[in-house]
Design a protein around this nucleic acid. Structure first.
Lengths: 158, 158
DNA sequence: CGGTATCCCATTTGATACTG
DNA sequence: CAGTATCAAATGGGATACCG
């Protein structure tokens, strides 16, 4: 059976997952964020099968997260570059990295540290904040139907 | 072939995905964050097959993201509750929701709005900040090997 | 190097039936 | 309600071969 799309009134998560949730998609994006641009570099660094890589890259292009640009006008070789839309998945990727480093790995197992180039200090964990920059407790998050809601249920984070 | 685990020196993302990246896992967690506790409520709200739901729930318990608690001592019925570890995936889920709402949906299509209960205002998008709370530009993120690095390469966000 | 095309099979998933 | 068991279908992934 087809891996059917997740359905729920709260479908933003589902929609994101349809684009980002396939195997290899997020690792490819991370690799791109780390500076990889060429097909073979993705291939070698990730250890992904070429055909899968090809499909994923094309889907990312199709969805507007990457674009393919010729290295120079008379070459067939090209770079796969992140668009703004692709770049902005960094928050998602960092959230996943930080969650792993906090909850899965012991401090000694952490493979990669993210730092701010300007201060040379570790980037702190993402926080859910209000408009004033104060941290919001998860239980203080409430949800209301948006204009595209199909049902008018009020959800509440737990 | 088996869906092989993603490999890369930067493996935190991969490890998170091994736990959270399967189909239905994140929607289940979102549903739990929205207050769902009972098997049948997950089943009905998500439209997931029962056997899959059962497997996912048990994996989440095994991984320490949820726990199963009897509703009362002499009942066989029980609640599936998020642990702290499970709760803290909220950041990931919110990152995914916000990315969709910003890059996929038009403003009129947004199905659910997250608000701060205390101020009743919309929760702003997650930001990558330094220790002082200043926003960091993606290009100013650098990466250095952590204690668990297998190779000693310095990566840099693009 | 930078891919595309085929093949093959394990895994996964949804449907259905069944149980306490 | 709260699951478990079984099953068939198909998708998805890796390997391999091939091409400009």
């Amino acid at each position: 059976m087809k891996k059917v799309s997740h359905s729920s009134d709260a479908c933003s998560l589902a929609k994101s997952m349809e684009i980002l949730g396939e195997w290899w998609t997020l690792p490819i994006l991370q690799e791109a964020l780390l500076g990889t641009k060429k097909f073979n570099d993705f291939y070698n660094n990730l250890g992904i099968a070429k055909n899968i890589l090809s499909v994923r890259l094309n889907k990312l292009i199709e969805e507007g997260l990457m674009e393919k640009k010729a290295i120079n006008p008379n070459s067939k070789r090209s770079y796969y570059l992140l668009t703004q839309k692709g770049l902005s998945t960094a928050t998602i990727i960092i959230a996943l990295i930080q969650w792993c480093d906090k909850w899965i790995l012991s401090p000694g197992e952490i493979p990669m540290i993210l730092k701010d180039r300007l201060t040379n200090k570790k980037i702190p964990n993402l926080k859910i904040q209000n408009e004033s920059g104060d941290e919001i407790n998860i239980w203080d998050i409430i949800t209301t139907p948006g204009p595209g809601a199909t049902k008018s249920i009020d959800y509440r984070f737990k």
